[in-house]
């Protein structure tokens, strides 16, 4: 009995080793057959060291002004229209006191107080959401855009707790039934992942400006913050601008001309 057991073990270990070797060899031939991937940027791609947005809030008065941008974004990115507290929003509007919580003033100019303001992801230079994400599903691109990979998000919502701007939304339910007219050029999201504005990185990469910028010519400006000659830098030089919660040190990339 003892002897046969030893023999059995010998045979078993040999066959396991053989199987392993075969698998390894198979894996190698497979790897050799694979095409070496090569990727490049689109020749038309718009490039910058640090993308930034300047919103001329004086230009937005009517509901239509805002809706043009919001609808353009919603359609471009298949954003569902979910009613209630689990809504999804990438760009939206709100009152002064909710937008600029740190610069509230009881005796504000009526005109500024009554105006509404866009809110969207600030694409911070020091994004807390990127810092806290445990899977690098949220990450900062070299051009300053804070992007997301929805394939990797585990839905822990740490980034939502980390974002001081409330720029992120979570898919509490299946978003598909809430999208009226699906844009076949962009994916939707699924239940259980976080999402937010991506500064239209997919459009920049093919040479187009962000959807909201395109929908509001001359009202929302987009450019390279690191280039002193850029339009956004000139606008910042010439106008008084605000950013949301600058004291937190996240260095937002969205500026508001007041």
């Amino acid at each position: 009995m003892k002897r046969s057991r030893r023999q059995f073990l010998k045979v078993a270990s040999l066959s396991v080793a053989g199987l392993g070797a075969q698998l390894a060899a198979g894996g190698m031939t497979k790897a050799a057959a694979a095409v070496k991937p090569s990727y490049k940027e689109d020749a038309l791609a718009l490039k910058a060291k640090r993308w930034a947005m300047v919103i001329d809030t004086r230009e937005f008065a009517s509901k239509e002004d805002f809706d043009a941008c919001i609808n353009a974004c919603n359609h471009a990115h298949n954003i569902p229209n979910i009613p209630g507290k689990s809504e999804i929003k990438w760009i939206w509007k709100d009152a002064y006191e909710h937008t600029f919580t740190e610069t509230k003033n009881k005796y504000q100019s009526k005109e500024i107080e009554d105006r509404e303001y866009f809110m969207l992801c600030n694409h911070c230079e020091n994004p807390p959401c990127v810092r806290v994400c445990p899977t690098q599903a949220t990450y900062k691109l070299e051009n300053g855009i804070v992007a997301m990979d929805y394939h990797r998000c585990i839905g822990c919502r740490f980034c939502m707790a980390g974002c001081p701007f409330g720029a992120r939304s979570f898919n509490f339910t299946d978003p598909r039934p809430y999208i009226k007219d699906i844009n076949p050029k962009f994916p939707t999201r699924m239940i259980g992942v976080v999402e937010k504005c991506n500064f239209c990185v997919e459009r920049l990469d093919e040479g187009k400006l962000p959807a909201c910028v395109e929908a509001a010519p001359g009202k929302i400006h987009f450019g390279d913050l690191s280039d002193p000659e850029s339009e956004v830098r000139k606008l910042l030089e010439e106008n008084y601008t605000l950013r949301r919660k600058p004291a937190l040190g996240t260095e937002p990339g969205v500026f508001y001309i007041i």
Binding site: C153, I154, C156, R157
Partner: peptide
């Protein structure tokens, strides 16, 4: 609490030392 518990192991597949989680 996770939205996508199926992807839980992503925390180990993509270890991220800057995340407290």
């Amino acid at each position: 609490d996770m939205g996508m518990p199926q992807r839980m192991l992503n925390v180990m597949l993509h270890p991220t030392p800057n995340s407290v989680m």
